[in-house]
């Protein structure tokens, strides 16, 4: 059971990383990056590293995702004006 979950997690991590890089739509890429960060959080906690998992969830997925979304907003605003 544990092994199957780990395998699924590893595949999902690789898949989301690939989709993040390959998606042409920049907004979707940022959302996928956040998904990637949350999956990475699960991986760290499966590897018994809860400290890194906490940091990844808060900084990697949360703050960086928000910053990237804000950057998209600024870029779109510039394109319109």
């Amino acid at each position: 059971m544990g092994f199957a979950f780990d395998l699924l997690l590893a595949l999902a991590l690789l898949w989301s990383a690939w989709r993040t890089l390959a998606t042409p739509d920049i907004f979707r890429a940022v959302i996928l990056f956040i998904v990637f960060g949350l999956l990475l959080t699960l991986v760290w906690s499966r590897l018994a590293a809860p400290d890194i998992a906490l940091a990844e969830a808060a900084i990697g997925a949360g703050l960086t995702g928000a910053l990237l979304l804000d950057a998209i907003g600024v870029l779109r605003g510039r394109k319109k004006s």
């Binding site: 809860p50 400290d51 998992a53 906490l54 940091a55 808060a58 900084i59 949360g62 703050l63 928000a66």
Partner: peptide, 16 residues
């Protein structure tokens, strides 16, 4: 597990 960096990140996330 916890500490200043994680707590600070949560504070910042609340402000954002």
């Amino acid at each position: 597990p916890g500490g200043a960096f994680q707590a600070g990140a949560v504070l910042a996330a609340a402000a954002v």
